[in-house]
Nucleic acid binder design. Structure first.
Lengths: 346, 346
DNA sequence: TTGTACGCGTTATCAA
DNA sequence: TTGATAACGCGTACAA
């Protein structure tokens, strides 16, 4: 690569390839109206001098920034973030897009932060942590901004989304422990109406319990607002009086908290109490007993999110897509046949 | 906020505030030559109509993109990534900068990926996973590109960096287990010369062992190339013949692997074998026994990284800064007084 | 203290 | 198939 004193521009390419800047642009962007011969020559020169179009200069006339915005939350328990982001960045780069990270300034709403980034220029958004009444949806839909959500959309939203099949997944978990002989299956979830995805997972629990004729006791259900294992621990203490012999949680972190609570109470996880998580974060295989869980293929999800978004960006009129990915039940040591004995009381 | 049909531009602000676009720019960017009265009026109008300068239009004439590039690696075991990125994004946004994520395309080197984003336009880089002979350093220094590294720099590099005090931290861990009575302390590290930070941590181990007069047996030291607990597990199997009663690892994930190996061998962690990790990832408090570890304040590190970089971006002539942050030894259940009994043999 | 005019690197339009 | 030219929205000299 010839070393240039400063960044080579489209004019440099043009001068060397003996064509006008306009032709260089057409050739490199794959637009029609360029002879194959010229296109090849231009591409070769561009490669040789290491030409890369300036983002800014490209965005200005075209009105397209080639940026995808992602609002990053402060969630220290999200162990899969690195994987998700990496997958998104990879998928984006394949289509010549880049991921722009932003977050809310202290006291600023996610909505306002999104508006700010939007005004500065992004072509679309990937949304996480979506609430049922999330104002971002209204904003984007009213302004025709493309978005795709990680997680099912609330009723009424007409956008694209990618999610693991939460209802089916949780139902699968309930079936699994039921097959092991458990009758009283607890559920540790998030507050109703907090996350769309959380509500769906709860639905899977209810459906499975009903279908299987398991104990349908409201005292077996508990909801927590956060993500930390500690919340799962407190949660289990709240339902232990209802004598669950198995617990299904909406996340691995909460499930690990349940395991800690069992330890507090002298209950043996796997023996006295079966526990199932959701996500399959690395810690799920690190804890002892290792945690049975529903594996969410985060990498695939990240890739699909971006692919779906880019497809809509390419043809704005197209139908929104919803992609559901079946989570895989990974059976480990936290679920073994139910103990015939009633668990120890506190 | 008045709703604009499309993005409000600097002209819109000017028209409403009854000043020229030039004055709007000067007022909003805090440049001299604007009366306080005018500046306040302009700022008010800008706020009212929700004006945000277009990134592209701003970058073009100024030659400054207000982007910080970060090469995101695919490391599923990096549980702190979300926290680090969030801290960096926050710190950047305070100074009106944004974080741009990029990664290497399949088969592409980190260097080439960096050159690509650089040509497209970024003002500086935050570097992770830095190797002693990392070619990025030469590139950036020869082209006067500002960068700051998460981790100590290799000898000869003259850039800024932020790191936890790895040598002091590991030494602190060795002192801790020595105080508990351990004489044969193993070390699970990365291959020499692989990561600058890894070599420094090893130095802390050697120094402490020497200073304390502990067993200085090469068979107590083992290095692994990866990050997965499984690597730590294999590592411990390799050094168990040297009869360590304590092990210090360069990461929590490796330490957790050591705990698994102890389980394989029927050794009780905390009783037969003391284990210390590094990082304090969430899983460190999830495993049982909970893991004693050196807490790396990732959030602080992320903030400082960006602050240090921005300071150099502001005054390019300034001296590079090196910031060392003391890790905190968090004592948990994996380190208890040494057992008087020789550990079980395989 | 403020306004005007130019240019940044690219893409789109229109003419050749 | 190609070249010339006019934006795109902003920052900044320079002029007023």
């Amino acid at each position: 690569m010839a070393t240039f004193p400063s960044r080579p521009t489209i004019r440099d390419v043009g001068r060397i390839a003996k064509v006008s800047p306009g032709t260089v642009s057409r050739a490199l962007r794959g637009r029609p109206g360029v002879s194959d011969e010229t296109r090849i020559r231009v591409e070769k020169v561009a490669r040789q001098i290491g030409y890369q179009a300036s983002r800014a200069a490209r965005a200005l006339p075209a009105g397209k920034t080639h940026f995808i915005g992602y609002h990053i939350a402060s969630d220290p328990f999200n162990a899969s973030m690195a994987t998700l982001l990496h997958a998104m960045v990879q998928a984006a780069s394949r289509a010549d897009f880049e991921m722009l990270l932003f977050s809310s300034k202290p006291g600023q709403s996610t909505l306002d932060a999104s508006v700010e980034v939007l005004q500065r220029g992004v072509d679309g958004f990937v949304l996480s942590y979506l609430r049922p009444d999330d104002p971002r949806i209204g904003l984007f839909e009213s302004r025709d901004i493309e978005y795709v959500a990680f997680g099912h959309l609330p009723r009424g939203a007409r956008g694209s989304w990618v999610d693991s099949a939460g209802a089916a997944g949780i139902a699968r978990a309930v079936h699994h422990v039921a097959e092991l002989g458990h009758q009283r299956v607890g559920f540790v979830g998030w507050p109703e109406g907090q996350w769309v995805t959380g509500d769906i997972r709860y639905r899977g629990y209810v459906e499975a319990v009903t279908e299987l004729g398991l104990a349908d006791d409201p005292a077996l259900v508990v909801r927590v607002g956060g993500y930390a294992p500690e919340e799962g621990r407190r949660a289990f203490h709240q339902i232990v009086a209802a004598r669950p012999t198995a617990v299904v949680a909406v996340s691995d972190n909460l499930a690990i908290g349940v395991m800690h609570a069992a330890e507090d109470l002298g209950l043996g996880v796997g023996t006295d109490l079966a526990v199932v998580g959701y996500d399959d974060i690395p810690a799920a295989s690190d804890v002892r007993p290792s945690l049975t869980t529903l594996r969410q293929p985060v990498q695939t999800i990240g890739t699909r999110l971006v692919e779906v978004l880019l497809r809509r960006l390419d043809n704005p009129g197209s139908e929104p897509e919803g992609v559901e990915i079946q989570p895989e039940l990974v059976i480990r040591s936290s679920t073994v046949p139910a103990s015939p004995v009633v668990p120890t009381q506190i």
